[in-house]
Design a protein around this nucleic acid. Structure first.
Lengths: 201, 201
DNA sequence: TATAAGTAAATGAATATTTACTTATCTTTA
DNA sequence: TAAAGATAAGTAAATATTCATTTACTTATA
């Protein structure tokens, strides 16, 4: 039996992400992908059932998985609240900064109905992903350090700004001066933390 | 001369937005749109140069324009800081809640390279749109009410969470209980404001 | 009646996927 | 040890469909 060439599998994923990042999800075609990866279209179908299967696996296995891992590196739910939030912010910034293609696909994940379906079918976002963060929030609510809002609400307040700031970072890459530095990021993080903390006074 | 049928023009825009919201930008085709709008494909080309022209005009004229108008209703840059921010949050929530298709297209605007190009070519986001908000931020920075961070940074901190909360609102529409109410929204807004305000104490 | 608005049908290019074939490599046999 | 067979990996080219856009024509109205 001929053995699977893992380089080709990797090339498919890498180049698919590149095309999506540079030309958009709507401009990724199987034939274009095959040509760019220097393989036959048929080869893609050996590894993936169809285009949807490819995109969903790309999204979940090649993007969301590594993303979660990077974001949670060195984080644990027992950390001090401010310290934990800062760790997540820094991890998010560092990872996305160095993986612009992943960031592009994550953004598509927010708008593409197909990728949304992938989220739903894989029970992602509610429970499976970022579980340590949920435990972290829960315990800090219990301790009275932060208010008792639903998790989703805390997520929006604490982590929506960092995504927006990363976006701004990429907008500024091609401009003379980068305004989104690690320093300004930490100032923002302090602002967000200051807002959410219950005054124990 | 035969007169233009404005209803057809409106149908094109309405149905295009519907398809994009329900099936995604990548699943909008000119023929599908024509069929759904009960017109000939040629009719679209009478009103728009090509598909890109249609999408960009849809995005800018039918979505971003009305969106900006709705968000700024009753707002002026001289307002009290907290009052102004709350007004924008409420306006955003009310508008997007009632215009889910517009919200879908706005989300696509964050990921689609074509719509990003539209932003750039029309000098949007930096200067033209939401100018009163920029003036508002500038004057509050000058007065020392909020820190002297770049506008983009303030935008991320103050307004990224509301977009995320609207997203959460729509996720919950099909579920038994809506967690994103106007009340919780105002609590969140208070949190965000509390964080950004300079302590004058 | 002049003319732009509109249509039905066609065009050629691009799309996802498949067919019919070739190739590499593991396992088995001599 | 080495040749042969089995088989999945891989390819080039084809398929049927859908795509954006156009052509050649009809219709409504100033």
């Amino acid at each position: 039996m001929r053995t699977k060439n893992l380089e080709k599998e990797k090339a498919i994923r890498t180049i698919a992400m590149q095309i999506i990042a540079e030309e958009g999800l709507e401009n990724l075609s199987m034939q274009k992908l095959a040509k760019a990866a220097n393989i036959s279209p048929r080869t893609i179908y050996i590894k993936y059932k169809d285009k949807e299967d490819l995109l969903i696996k790309l999204f979940i296995e090649a993007v969301l998985g590594p993303y979660e891992e990077a974001v949670l590196k060195g984080f644990n739910p027992e950390m001090d609240f401010a310290e934990g939030v800062k760790r997540i912010w820094l991890n998010t910034f560092c990872y996305l900064k160095n993986n612009p293609h992943a960031f592009a696909l994550i953004k598509h994940g927010k708008s593409s109905p197909m990728l949304q379906k992938a989220y739903r079918e894989n029970n992602i976002s509610e429970g499976d992903f970022f579980l340590p963060v949920q435990i972290f929030l829960k315990s800090n609510k219990k301790k009275g350090i932060i208010p008792n809002y639903p998790h989703e609400v805390h997520r929006a307040i604490l982590f929506a700004p960092i995504a927006e700031l990363v976006n701004e970072y990429f907008d500024n890459v091609s401009r003379p001066k980068q305004i989104i530095t690690e320093k300004i990021l930490m100032l923002c993080c302090d602002v967000v933390i200051k807002g959410i903390l219950n005054k124990i006074s």
